[in-house]
């Protein structure tokens, strides 16, 4: 009997990596400089690598004969469990950086806890990810400072992005049934315990970057229940194009 909660839990984490990696992949070759282009691609590559580790593990747990690619490419939109934050579009470089930073701070906190999971595989994936995500956070955090405390125009653009994406931050800490069950079993992370550290750290950096920290008042949720924003369908149309057009083939 497969542990359905564990399976869902792994997908919940892996989906964030997949969808953010996919978003960053859109930018490859279109960044504001060669160095940021390389960094963005590098982060995307790390995230896709993590995705593969999570999905390979999930596929192994599944009772069905499935692979990492079945999980990545052959679900319906309602079955993806990523948070709304990571699916938001690359509106401009400020949004790319804000989305990245707001996710990275959460992501690192999550992995730092997950490395102590009772589940050895998850703990190992987390441990490996910590190194990568520490770099992601340093990259995105540095850019928040540069853009926030750069020129008047960059400050405005960075603020616009933070204001636009802030409403998706609380969802990062929402506890699904799978989350709760996994915490009880000593496998998963109690996200509610990370929340205050998260907002404190983000507040400090935004303040240093001379940016306004938005109020923690109105938030949007839904991604973790598979109710996504209107952007998600188009992202999946790209992601799934080959597998849907040419089903049951090896690539």
């Amino acid at each position: 009997m497969v542990n359905q909660n564990l399976y869902n839990y792994i997908l919940g984490i892996g989906d964030n990596s997949l969808i953010l990696g996919q978003r960053l992949g859109e930018l490859c070759g279109h960044g504001p400089s060669l160095e940021t282009d390389i960094a963005g691609t590098n982060i995307s590559l790390d995230l896709i690598g993590q995705t593969r580790s999570y999905y390979q593990y999930a596929a192994k747990l599944s009772e069905k004969e499935i692979t990492e690619d079945d999980i990545a490419f052959l679900r319906s939109e309602r079955e993806y469990r990523n948070t709304l934050l990571v699916e938001q579009p690359n509106t401009h470089f400020g949004f790319v950086i804000a989305r990245q930073y707001l996710f990275d701070v959460f992501h690192l906190l999550l992995l730092q806890e997950l490395q102590h999971s009772k589940d050895d595989t998850l703990a190992a994936i987390a441990k490996k990810g910590i190194k990568e995500v520490s770099y992601h956070k340093r990259f995105s955090g540095d850019w928040i400072k540069r853009l926030g405390d750069g020129t008047e125009e960059s400050n405005e653009k960075m603020q616009e992005a933070i204001d636009g994406l802030w409403r998706y931050t609380d969802e990062l800490f929402e506890m699904t049934d799978a989350d709760k069950e996994m915490v009880t079993e000593g496998i998963g992370v109690d996200l509610s315990k990370l929340k205050e550290t998260y907002y404190q750290e983000v507040t400090e950096l935004l303040t240093e970057a001379t940016l306004q920290v938005p109020e923690r008042k109105y938030f949007n949720y839904g991604g973790k229940k598979g109710v996504h924003t209107e952007h998600m369908g188009y992202l999946l149309a790209d992601l799934q194009y080959m597998q849907r057009t040419y089903p049951n083939m090896q690539w």
Binding site: G25, I38, T41, R52, M249
Partner: peptide, 26 residues
């Protein structure tokens, strides 16, 4: 083709390849 690569393995390889090209440019 990065966003439409047909498998995760191919997506990662293509990302790495295009990144190499950026590195060569650099």
């Amino acid at each position: 083709w990065i966003t439409r690569a047909p498998s995760l393995r191919r997506k990662a390889a293509l990302l790495a390849k295009v990144q190499d090209e950026a590195g060569h440019g650099l």
